[in-house]
Amino acid sequence: MINKENAALEGKSPPETAAALISEYGNYVYTIVFSRLRSCGTSEDIEECVSDIFIEAARDIGSSEFFSGDLKAALGTLAKRRAINYYKRLSAGNSKRTALTDDMDSGENILLNAERRDIQRQILGAVEALGKPDSEILLLKYYYCMSAGDIAKRVGMSSRNVQKHAERALGRLGELLEARGIRRNDL
């Protein structure tokens, strides 16, 4: 079945397809890849992985069955697979890095996974509760590890203010999580 999105991409050249896909799913795919490579890859590795995903998608979208159904789900799956490959490659030869949790979805870990997801959901909920721009600054600073200067340019504040917001938001996040029964020691 060709869905609406695929139909809209029909007839477009690969660069045009890539532009449309990045515009629609760029952030989604980047987030998936980042969450997997954050601990081992540089920003260059992450960008390379994300671009590989869109190159593959833009090239094969008209010809591969893989993309014929739900496009978003297919991109999500592709992103995960690619990120895991990158992780393995990046981790090779570095014994200090912990083993990849790509087997997290295996049956043995269902309970652990459920618990992990629940905590992640709670953390995201708490971040959301901070409201913008604190939630955004907090994530950019402590999750995406951007410098205060870059965040400042992005959110339209001075870097000093970004620092202030970030520290304050981090403090509040701790309080909110504690209110939800998640203590710092649990993390």
């Binding site: 989604y28 949790t101 995201l124 971040v127 998640i182």
Partner: peptide, 17 residues
């Protein structure tokens, strides 16, 4: 930080993030 726990998130949470 607490946000380090957001590694290896699933698709649904990735979308929300």
């Amino acid at each position: 930080t607490e946000l380090d726990r957001l590694e290896n998130i699933d698709d649904e949470l990735a979308e929300k993030l």
